[in-house]
């Protein structure tokens, strides 16, 4: 039985970690870009960012003072037993958010949309967002937090099948160029693309693709994986780097997630996970242990199942070479 206190403790730990320590995969991507970037100004920006990540980790202070909108992704094993139930988990996550906001400190960004009232703890109506998913044959609970920054860098469009790959590329470029100018998107970014689903699911998938997959990870469908690499190269060929300065550092990686959609349409969303790509995950075991990591492993084979039945993690590992 996994108790509420241990859920809250895990959530509090990942909240603190996410705000301060840049994930290794992202840092490695930026360091590679420093080597390749030929634009003087863009290169200066990247080098300053690397220094900034080091300062944040050494001083234990948030890497970016706009600590974004903290949110959670919870994956529950089908065999997990939770002492306080699901309501207990939601309460624990809200409490962890409020405590971490004071202790790190995080900026109390959450306000009422109309009255702008602020509880000073990043908790409010529908906030923090909590998204749930499930995993067969598992008895743990995994808690991922993402502190998503950026008022800029995301867009949605209804495309049609006839628009084809050209239409996808064009909308992708539109979004990167529009929000890349002056660096409004705080690029280089992990770009997430959501294709298909209903309109809202296209947005959700794109955001999860940006925030919950690591730099270097490829989609298991080889044709989608090829498109990811093509879009990454296209973004870095715009001629724009960090802060919209001349350069080539726009896209650290591109991730695409798909959902079956209406036969007449092809909804698409584009999301950028900024220079402060803050995410952290912890697995809470059935025995109450907390194991931290930076890869959320959100998109399991079960998450991407295509039809009524699914293959288990073990089966699909055996199948792939």
């Amino acid at each position: 039985m996994i108790g509420n206190e241990i859920i809250e403790q895990a959530a509090y730990e990942v909240m603190c970690k996410a705000a301060i320590d840049i994930p290794d995969d992202y840092l490695g991507g930026i360091k590679g870009m420093v080597q390749r970037e030929e634009g003087t100004l863009s290169c200066f920006v990247l080098r300053s960012m690397v220094e900034n990540y080091e300062a944040a980790s050494t001083d234990r202070r948030p890497m970016c003072a706009d600590t974004g909108l903290p949110r959670y992704y919870v994956k529950v094993g089908n065999e997990a037993r939770i002492g306080g139930g699901f309501v207990g988990v939601e309460r624990a996550l809200r409490s962890a958010t409020a405590r971490a906001t004071h202790d790190v400190p995080l900026r109390p960004n959450r306000v009422h949309p109309l009255w702008r009232t602020d509880h000073d703890n990043n908790v409010g109506i529908n906030a923090p967002e909590i998204e749930w998913s499930f995993e067969p044959d598992a008895d743990w609970v995994e808690i991922t937090t993402v502190h998503k920054g950026g008022l800029f860098g995301t867009d949605y469009r209804m495309l049609f099948p006839g628009d084809g790959i050209d239409g996808i590329k064009r909308f992708y470029l539109d979004t990167l160029v529009a929000f890349g100018k002056r660096g409004l998107a705080c690029q280089p970014a992990i770009v997430g693309v959501g294709l298909g689903g209903s309109k809202d699911v296209s947005m959700v998938l794109g955001k999860q693709a940006a925030c919950l997959r690591t730099v270097g990870d490829r989609h298991p469908d080889p044709r989608i994986a090829a498109l990811e690499l093509e879009l990454k190269a296209l973004g870095n060929d715009i001629g724009m780097g960090a802060m919209g300065f001349v350069g080539s550092s726009m896209v650290i990686d591109c991730h695409i997630e798909v959902g079956h959609t209406h036969t007449g349409g092809m909804p698409m969303s584009v999301h950028t996970f900024c220079l402060s790509s803050r995410r952290a995950t912890a697995r809470v075991g059935a025995d109450g242990t907390i194991e931290p990591r930076t890869d959320p492993r959100w998109f399991t084979p079960y998450m991407r199942r295509e039809t009524v039945e699914w293959t288990s993690e073990a089966q699909s590992a055996r199948k792939s070479p």
Binding site: F44, V45, S48, M49, E51, N52, Y53, A55, A56, D59, R61, P62, M63, C64, A65, D66, P108, D118, D120, G149, G183, C186, A242, M243, C274, L275, S276
Partner: peptide, 26 residues
Amino acid sequence: VGYGTGALLGRGIRRVHDVHWLDELG
């Protein structure tokens, strides 16, 4: 620069000299 250089900028702050309208404006 960045624009995420919050930690570097945080280092440059020696102290809070004063704060005005905190209760009113948050």
